[in-house]
Design a protein around this nucleic acid. Structure first.
Lengths: 340, 340
DNA sequence: GTGAAAGCGCTAACAT
DNA sequence: ATGTTAGCGCTTTCAC
C-alpha cells in the first residue's frame, strides 16, 4: 500500500481530482456533505499533499543547503545552530552537508545541491578549496541563479553575499593585547595556514608586530597540519626563543598549547600567556581557563541565514552584494597576565 | 532569466522535448550532429535536470531527515557526523532539524518532513516528548509508511527500528566500577531525569547498589534542570553525606561537577572520584582528566543510517523491527582512583 | 532519428 | 457545486 493521493480519493468517491483538492482545502465551492465525507476519509487515510508536486509547481523547496568543512569544530556547530534558528523561524529546513575539508567532496555536494533541491545555499569553503583557488563549483551555483552566502572561509573569486569575522583586525588587536600585558615574544600557531582566515590572521599578527616596533620572526609562526606533532614543533620554538605569549588559531589548538606548555614546566600565565580563537566549550573549563577571541558563531549563522532568506524572497530586488563583518571580542580569562 | 529547461532548449533548436532529453542523456537514438549541438548548448547555458521533477517521477528524494534535541551537545554532533558519513557514501543528503527539547517544535518539524520531503527519518526524542509520552507525530510518520529509525531517546510506543545504548547496563557497570575502586557513597547527577536514557541509567545505578548490599538513598540523586543551580544542589548533598564517588550523566555535567567539587576543596580523585557519560572533547582536557563512559556516538549514527537506508532500499522486504544495542565502554582517566 | 502521448501529484483558471 | 483543461519539468513507451 503506497501513499494515498488525491487521485485515490477521487476514485473512491467517484468524483474528479480537483473536487477532492478543493474539498481538502475546505473550499466554499464544494458542498457541505461531500466536503465533510472527503475530509474525514482523507484524515483517516493519512492523506498529505505531496510536497514534491507542490515544490515542482511553486519552484521552491523551502530548504536551504548548508555546507561546512567540519562539523566536529564547535565554531561551525554554533554557526549551524544560528542558521537553524533563523531558518526555522522563517519556515525553512536546512540540508546540512559536510565537506570534511575536501575539495572533491565539496564539489560533489555542491553539484548535487545545484539542481532544484534547495532555494539557497550557505557555504564555508574547505581548506583544500581555498588553497587550490578553484571555485568552479560555486560559480556554477551563482551562475545558476541560486542565492549563495559565504561565511568565514570566503573567496574573492566568488561574487555573492558574505559574512566574515574581522580576522585581520582581531589578530591585530589580540597581538596588541599581548604587548599591553608585557609580552615581548609572541608565537603564532595555525592549524589553518592555507585558509583565508588563517592568512588574514597571520597578516594581522605580523602588522601588529611591525607597527609597534617588534620584530616579526617567521620562526615564531607554527603551521601545524592535522598529522603534525604539535608537541615537537612547540618544543623546537620554545627551545629557540624565550617565548612569553602564544596565539592559537582555534580552540583545540589553544588547549593543546596549554597542555604542552604546562607539561614543559612553564607557568601560565606567569611565564607564558595564551590566547586562542573560537570561544567554545573547552576554554572555560581547562585550568587555567583560557582567554579567547569570540567569533560569535551563532550570530554569524543568524546573519548568514537572514541575508540568504532575504535574497531568496526578493529575487528581483537586484540588491548589491554585501559583505557583513562581524566583530570579534576578547573574553579575558586566566591564561593571560593582567594588563600592566 | 530563470533556470533553463528542456523546453527552452527544444524551442531553441526547433525540436521536441523528448529529443532534447535523449540528447543530453547521450542516447544512441539521436543523430551525432544534433546531439553534439544540443549538449554544447546545454552545457553553455548551465542546464541541470530539475531534481524536483525527477523526484516526483521517482517518488524519492535521496534525502533523509534527522531530528535531534540539541545540536550543542557533542554526543548528538558525533551521531550526526556518523549519519552524514554513511548517508554521503550511499548518496543521500541529510536534512537536519533541531527540536531544542521542545515537544511543539518536534511535532511541527515532523509534520513538515512527513510529506514526501524525505525518504526516511532518524530521530532522537526531545525530553518533553518523552515526558509527555505523546507520540502522535511519530506514529503519523510510521503509519504513512515512511521508514523511521529512533536512536538514544526512544519510546516503546513507537514500532520502528531503534539504536540505543545499553544505558541500564552502562550505569550498572559504572556503579560497580565505583565500588571496585572503593567508593562507598556514590551520588548520581542527572540533567535528563525525564528522558528514557536518564531513567534507565538511574535504574541501573540503583540496581547495582542494591545488588551489592549498598543502600540506595534518593538524596544522593540530583536531578538538575537547565535553570537549576547545580552548585547549590551539590553543596547540599556534599554537606549531608561523605560522598566519594559521583556519576554525571553527560559531559558538561561531569565537568561542572569537577569544578564544583574542586572549588570546595576536595581532591579528585583523592577524596572523590568522578565519572561522566559521553566521551567528548572536554573530558580529555580538564584536569584531572575525566574518566568517561563512551557511547560511541559516531558508531550509533552510522548504525542508524545503515539501518534506515537498508529499509528505504528494501521497502517490500517486510523485515521485523530491530533494536540495536550499542555497548558503551569506560575510558579510564585521572578522575577515578586506581582499582584497589 | 525524431516526435506524440501519457503520467508523476497537484493546483489554478475556466467551463458547465 | 462539480468537472475540464492545462501545466510545473521530466522520462518512458510507442509510433512514424
Amino acid at each position: 500500500m503506497n501513499k494515498i493521493t488525491l487521485k485515490d480519493i477521487a476514485k473512491h468517491f467517484g468524483v474528479s481530482i480537483p473536487t477532492v483538492s478543493k474539498a481538502v482545502h475546505d473550499s466554499y465551492e464544494i458542498s457541505r456533505g461531500l466536503k465533510e465525507r472527503i475530509q474525514k476519509y482523507a484524515k483517516e487515510n493519512h492523506y498529505k499533499p505531496n510536497k514534491l508536486a507542490l515544490n515542482l509547481i511553486n519552484k521552491s523547496t523551502r530548504a536551504i543547503g548548508v555546507l561546512v568543512p567540519n562539523i566536529l569544530n564547535y565554531f561551525f556547530v554554533q554557526v549551524l545552530y544560528g542558521i537553524e534558528k533563523v531558518a526555522h523561524e522563517k519556515g525553512y529546513n536546512i540540508i546540512s552537508c559536510i565537506s570534511d575539508e575536501s575539495f572533491e567532496k565539496e564539489s560533489k555536494t555542491l553539484a548535487i545541491l545545484d539542481s532544484g533541491t534547495v532555494d539557497g545555499l550557505i557555504v564555508s569553503l574547505s581548506e583544500e578549496t581555498q588553497l587550490k583557488g578553484k571555485m568552479e563549483a560555486l560559480n556554477e551555483i551563482t551562475s545558476n541563479q541560486i542565492p549563495l552566502v559565504l561565511f568565514d572561509r570566503v573567496s574573492d573569486l566568488i561574487a555573492c553575499d558574505k559574512v566574515v569575522v574581522d580576522d585581520f583586525e582581531a589578530a591585530y588587536k589580540t597581538t596588541r593585547y599581548f604587548m599591553d600585558i608585557g609580552c615581548k615574544n609572541i608565537a603564532f600557531v595555525s592549524p589553518i595556514g592555507n585558509s583565508s582566515v588563517g592568512i588574514l590572521r597571520h597578516e594581522g599578527y605580523r602588522k601588529a608586530l611591525t607597527d609597534n616596533g617588534y620584530d616579526y620572526d617567521a620562526k615564531m609562526v607554527i603551521n601545524c597540519g592535522p598529522k603534525d606533532d604539535l608537541d615537537l614543533l612547540m618544543a623546537f620554538v620554545l627551545a629557540e626563543k624565550k617565548i612569553d605569549g602564544i596565539l592559537g588559531l582555534d580552540e583545540i589548538t589553544a588547549v593543546k598549547i596549554l597542555q604542552i606548555v604546562k607539561s614543559k614546566g612553564y607557568e601560565v600565565p606567569g611565564d607564558i600567556s595564551i590566547i586562542g580563537f573560537t570561544n567554545g566549550q573547552l576554554s572555560k573549563y581547562v585550568s587555567p581557563s583560557l582567554t579567547m577571541v569570540s567569533q560569535h558563531g551563532k550570530y554569524i549563522g543568524e546573519s548568514a541565514a537572514k541575508l540568504l532568506i532575504h535574497r531568496i524572497e526578493n529575487p528581483n530586488a537586484d540588491l548589491p552584494f554585501e559583505t557583513k563583518v562581524v566583530k570579534t571580542s576578547l573574553i579575558v580569562r586566566e591564561s593571560t597576565k593582567k594588563t600592566e
